[in-house]
Design a binder for these strands. Sequence first.
DNA 1: GTTGAAAGGATGGACCT
DNA 2: AGGTCCATCCTTTCAAC
Lengths: 171, 171
Amino acid sequence: MTEQIPDKPDGDKTFVRLDDVDRKILSLLQQDASLSLDQIADRVGASKTPVWNRIRKLREAGVIRRQVAILDPEALGLEACFFVLIRTSEHDKEWAARFLRALRERPEVVEAHRLAGDIDYILKVQVRNARAYDRFYQSLIGEVKIHNVTALLSMEEIKASSALPIAEASG
Amino acid sequence: MTEQIPDKPDGDKTFVRLDDVDRKILSLLQQDASLSLDQIADRVGASKTPVWNRIRKLREAGVIRRQVAILDPEALGLEACFFVLIRTSEHDKEWAARFLRALRERPEVVEAHRLAGDIDYILKVQVRNARAYDRFYQSLIGEVKIHNVTALLSMEEIKASSALPIAEASG
DNA sequence: GTTGAAAGGATGGACCT
DNA sequence: AGGTCCATCCTTTCAAC
């Protein structure tokens, strides 16, 4: 389980057909990427070579994006997590580009989505404390015009899974 | 970069003191856990053994929780992502326990937080399509009583980082 | 912190079924 | 396609300095 694919620009949207063995492999790897090839082969009931070839293909196809270490936010002193609901009045391209760049260059923005409906964006922001959030907020609205912001403070992380639900049946 | 810590029940909230080398190591690993010890040692400007000892301690202390593969949701046919805002009227312990269990046992709930303020919970739900979301929704409200639900549909994932912002300066 | 050695895993080739 | 065997290289792991 080594080597990363160097910047796959998702060129091939050749729809990858996954069979049950692929899904089993993915399911294992998204829960624990430190498993050895032997262990994986064992658990999916196949032997090393085919499993290794499948993993390689899944990486090349971009199904497996990358392999990362998941850290404990609190151990890093990041005890405050906010979900930020954003409404904007601007909808032109230039504004969107600036807003996007502002989000991408701020590491405390851990996640960002453009939404359908009357709320335009949602952010997940991970910071040290409320004061740090305020600094982030002031800095953001100083950089791009935003109509309305609602911040939801997380009191407790009930569930945080990096694992996606992998369906049993194929399409 | 192998071996997982087997179920660390976060016993030691002995606050881990991290120095700059620790932070550099964590920063690298949370972006690419497939780096070899040699590469990490190289980039932090130290040699293998001390780096290896630090990583071991960071794992044992629970700063590094686990090591996972990040998959592409769309490649798995999970094209719909919803943020779900939940208000409840119930606030007793029993209700909360049931609600919690309901969330934990549903794999499509990828993330869940209890909030401060008038919205009580936020969920992130990853599913195949709107119909699958509706099935999830019906099933959830059939299992636990919920006062009010608002679903926000993601049109575009602008940013999705599993990497936390690691501060440069210590406390 | 450094060196180096031993054990084990990853990668890929050759050749089967 | 998958399976087995094998060879080589690379890492991890840890002992000794």
